[in-house]
Computed example of a mutant assay.
Amino acid sequence: MKNRKPLVIGNLTARIPVIQGGMGVGISLSSLAGSVAACGGVGVISTAQIGWREADFCKNPLEANFRAMKKEILKARQISEGKGILGVNIMVATQHYKEYVKEAVKNGVDLIISGAGLPVDLPGLVQGSKTKIAPIISSLKSAKVLCKMWDRKYQTAPDLVVIEGPKAGGHLGFSREELETIDELGYDEVIRSVVKLVREYADKYKKKIPVAVAGGIFKSEDLDHALELGADGVQLGTRFVTTKECDASMEYKQSYLDARQEDVCIVQSPVGMPGRAIQNEFVQRVQREKLPIRRCHHCIVTCSPKEIPYCITDALVNAVEGNTKEGLLFCGANVWRCDRIETVAEIMEEFQ
């Protein structure tokens, strides 16, 4: 235990500078997020197709997702018992993005973390509320563009910035070529440059804007490295999957435990972005053939049901429910290092 400084986001304080990444569909819901917050971190619920278990999801996905979001936030609050910080992750590429943000605000969430595109309109959607906002960026260029736009249009700056590097899981903010050529030490310079930029806006608005590093974070030594680069904390997702509290099925968790380093691959998502996943029968199959789309779940704005090779909602739901042979298993680059089922408390103790 190193007694690191807490992560302070406006008037919110996480005793341990760890943000649990938002993982959908259904990987990080109330059990995981509430448990992380209860241990003094930032617990994050993924809103991506969060209502897939609702009876009317296929007919009314938007209403089902909003209903489930409210339930999960309430459950997470009960689990956390008022400790830590509770956030939601809402992808910018989500259909009805603005409505999702407003629904999260209405349900009193502490923090909205938003990536998969630049959340250029986010400040206007939370105006008048206590909800803090945090963009996910992957480059200095995107950080400059976003901060400049928020400054000019809304006269504000982020409350938190998450820098997500090339080792992250799920959809990635890099091209396939960048992922093949990017240098880890070179990316340290990206982190330093973004930290410097964020500090300039912090000075302008006379507020503290913490920076969290994400992508490949697995051990407490990774937090130490991020702090050395000038960051204030880290975000990790993959390691939280193999916890007792994670909302995924045991079959999903076992896929992580069984994964070898050579099983980690880059896939092309139907929504137009590269993603990192575990090589399995499903990934091999969709490389050979197009799977029929039974129905559209209205998930991502860039999706064209007539053209995509498979439905990403169906693939992710199959995975989280335990049908891993027909599911897409998103993961971080260090998934092969997961070797046991542990508890959220054990992980948080390591990082405090």
Rank of each mutant, 00 (worst) to 15 (best):
T94N: 11
Y97M: 07
K98S: 14
K98P: 07
E99H: 12
Y100M: 11
V101H: 04
K102Y: 00
E103N: 14
A104G: 08
K106W: 05
K106L: 12
N107D: 12
N107S: 11
V109T: 05
V109A: 08
D110H: 14
D110E: 12
I112Q: 05
I112K: 04
I113Q: 00
I113A: 09
S114M: 07
G115V: 08
A116N: 11
A116D: 03
G117L: 02
G117E: 05
L118M: 14
V120S: 06
D121Q: 14
D121P: 06
L122M: 12
L122E: 06
G124W: 11
G124A: 11
G124T: 10
V126D: 06
G128M: 07
G128F: 03
T131M: 09
T131P: 00
A134E: 00
A134H: 07
P135W: 04
P135N: 00
I136W: 09
I136R: 02
I137M: 05
S138L: 04
L140R: 02
K144F: 03
K144S: 11
V145C: 00
V145P: 01
K148Y: 12
K148S: 15
M149P: 00
W150P: 05
D151H: 15
Y154C: 02
Q155C: 12
Q155F: 12
T156F: 02
A157L: 02
L160Y: 03
L160T: 05
V162S: 08
V162R: 03
I163E: 01
I163H: 08
I163V: 14
E164V: 06
G165E: 01
G165M: 07
P166I: 06
P166K: 03
K167N: 13
A168Y: 08
A168V: 11
G169H: 06
G169E: 00
G170F: 02
G170N: 08
G170I: 04
H171S: 08
H171M: 13
H171V: 11
G173I: 07
G173L: 10
G173S: 11
G173R: 11
F174T: 09
S175E: 08
R176W: 05
E177P: 08
E177A: 15
L179T: 06
L179H: 04
T181C: 01
I182C: 06
D183S: 15
G186D: 00
G186M: 09
Y187E: 08
Y187Q: 10
D188F: 14
E189M: 12
E189Q: 15
V190P: 07
I191W: 08
I191P: 01
I191F: 01
I191T: 12
R192H: 06
S193L: 09
V195F: 03
V195P: 05
V195N: 01
V195Q: 03
K196Y: 12
L197K: 00
L197P: 05
R199Y: 11
Y201R: 04
D203I: 10
Y205K: 02
K207V: 02
K207G: 09
K208E: 15
K208W: 12
